[in-house]
């Protein structure tokens, strides 16, 4: 057993864990935040994407102990404290960018990361290439691409980026 401390969605947490505990297990089983999913166990599908210190990371192949002192944000942490959705969440709903919803949290976390890295004016080619690490079996990506594009523009829309619960 080992002790780990980190910030999850703005809250400081400390826990004694088996040292082989994966970050996704820590988030789901220890923190009871079940929005982050496991789809493949091999960092291929991206259902487990969270933000660690502002960068998109696949939590199924990250040890919780690696995140000592880190700032972790999950899908549960991106809406504003009053429940106002993050523009990327809103864009996925508006553009029907989800069906079964299982890949969606990872998709949204990756999409926000794409905008953070590539800016708000994305072309389709860039969006498709950047989504390479997230698999969706339902939508054929058609509407996800539209959602990411709209979400990216909406994130630029507020003069100052919307202040979110944890970011």
């Amino acid at each position: 057993m080992a002790t780990v401390s980190m910030t999850v969605n703005g809250k400081a947490v400390t826990a004694d864990i088996d040292s082989r505990t994966l970050l996704v297990q820590f988030i789901r089983e220890n923190q009871l935040l079940t929005g982050t999913h496991v789809g493949c166990d091999t960092s291929q599908c991206g259902a487990c994407v969270v933000h660690i210190d502002g960068k998109a990371v696949k939590s199924c192949t990250t040890l919780a102990l690696q995140c000592q002192g880190a700032n972790v944000v999950t899908i549960e942490g991106i809406a504003a404290a009053d429940g106002t959705l993050h523009p990327m969440q809103e864009a996925f709903r508006e553009h029907h960018g989800l069906q079964c919803g299982f890949c969606t949290p990872g998709m949204i976390m990756s999409a926000i990361d794409i905008v953070n890295r590539k800016g708000n004016d994305l072309d389709e080619h860039t969006i498709r290439e950047e989504l390479e690490g997230n698999i969706c079996r339902c939508t054929g990506y058609h509407n996800i691409v539209r959602a990411v594009d709209a979400g990216a523009k909406a994130m630029a829309g507020s003069a100052k980026p919307m202040k979110h619960a944890a970011e």
Partner: peptide
């Protein structure tokens, strides 16, 4: 019509068997 079920999925509140 935009989907009624989406709010829980986009906020990570969906409840799948493993949850």
């Amino acid at each position: 019509v935009r989907r009624k079920e989406d709010h829980r999925f986009i906020t990570g509140s969906g409840r799948y068997t493993d949850d």
